[in-house]
């Protein structure tokens, strides 16, 4: 009958719609007051540039989490794909080929994840943990831990260039965000992913091709990872096998802070952008305040707890 929860639902709904934006605004104002450098144009542009990689990874994780899965592999796959792309750039000098190789490498791991999860029914946590190990091993076997520097300017432009006053990687990020938004809100497969995360049995009984949709989410996540890897290496002007470790956690944090449910079925990309920006400004602010990185990790850890606690409360209020 649901009469009893009316008050709670509106609070829960309010949070899931606007709460995250409110938190962002409050943080932004407080940080601006404490540190005047924070609000400078140069600094804000830096923040946006720094969240590019996390946000693109978060787009992939968004599809995974909404359909009730999770991907632990991006942190290493990104390094493999990015390094491979940089290597290819150095050897062939062909930017187009380098891009294809990087994206294909990401896609390959997405396909591996998808196959493990859909064909063999391996829980996503385990499947992607395994592929993370594989990527980690592959990258070390391939590079021996060596960095590839002296990349040509055309490659570095991907991570450092500007079009007008807008950083090039930010444009890429916006395109990926728009694609993700369209997939989730305007395509049958997006609907299917929400339904699968919300109630897989019901999705199956409604004729949704569950495996196909899950496979798609994994593959899409892989391409996002490949792209993020290329942009990260280009920003650092070198292919670094050790880069990106643990970034999947930042991406997952962004998605969860943005109100996507860990158990699937609920969430949207607009809030994830805000989640990603919140992580971005917190990190940036702590850098400005000279807080060392260990403390930054503690703060991010607390942030995950808070976000998940809110998620659990929201779900409690929403179900009878």
């Amino acid at each position: 009958m649901g009469n009893g929860k009316k008050g709670n639902i509106s609070i829960a709904e309010f949070y899931s719609k606007f709460g995250i934006v409110l938190i962002f605004v409050i943080l932004f104002v407080v940080m601006s007051i404490i540190n005047h450098n924070f609000i400078s144009g140069v600094n804000l542009r830096n923040v946006v540039r720094q969240v590019v990689v996390i946000t693109i990874l978060a787009c992939g994780e968004q599809l995974m989490l909404i359909s009730g899965m999770v991907d632990l592999s991006p942190g290493r796959v990104l390094a493999f794909a990015g390094t491979l792309s940089a290597y290819c750039m150095l050897k062939t000098g062909n930017l187009f080929l380098a891009l294809i190789v990087g994206l294909a490498c990401g896609l390959l791991f997405g396909v591996i994840n998808g196959a493990l999860i859909t064909a063999f029914d391996i829980p996503p946590f385990i499947a992607t943990l395994a592929s993370m190990q594989m990527a980690d091993g592959a990258i070390m076997a391939f590079t021996g831990g060596q960095n590839y520097s002296n990349l040509p300017a055309s490659f570095n432009f991907l991570g450092q260039g500007y079009i007008g006053f807008i950083p090039f990687p930010v444009i890429i990020m916006i395109i990926v965000l728009i694609i993700t938004y369209i997939i989730l809100a305007w395509t049958p497969i997006g609907r299917a992913l929400y339904a699968i995360g919300g109630n897989q049995a019901a999705a199956l009984a409604s004729g949704i091709r569950v495996k196909k949709a899950k496979f798609f989410a994994c593959a899409f996540g892989g391409v996002c990872t490949g792209l993020a890897g290329i942009l990260l290496m280009a920003r650092m002007s070198s292919g670094q096998p050790a880069a990106g470790e643990g970034m999947e956690m930042d991406a997952i944090t962004a998605v969860i802070v943005g109100g996507t449910s860990m158990s699937g079925g609920v969430g949207n990309i607009l809030n994830t952008i805000v989640g990603s920006l919140i992580i971005g400004i917190i990190k940036n602010f702590m850098n400005l305040q000279n807080i060392n990185s260990s403390f930054q990790d503690i703060v991010l850890g607390i942030l995950i707890c808070v976000a998940v606690i809110i998620d659990v409360q929201v779900r409690k209020a929403n179900t009878k």
Binding site: I182, W186, G190, Y194, A195, N199, A202, I208, G265, T319
Partner: peptide, 25 residues
């Protein structure tokens, strides 16, 4: 039912093909 989704999405769930033109809903 997918309880966490809306009435409309639930009704549409088995009919997504009918509601889409190409890849777009």
């Amino acid at each position: 039912l997918v309880l966490c989704r809306s009435i409309g999405e639930n009704i549409a769930l088995a009919n997504l093909k009918h509601f889409s033109r190409g890849f777009i809903l």
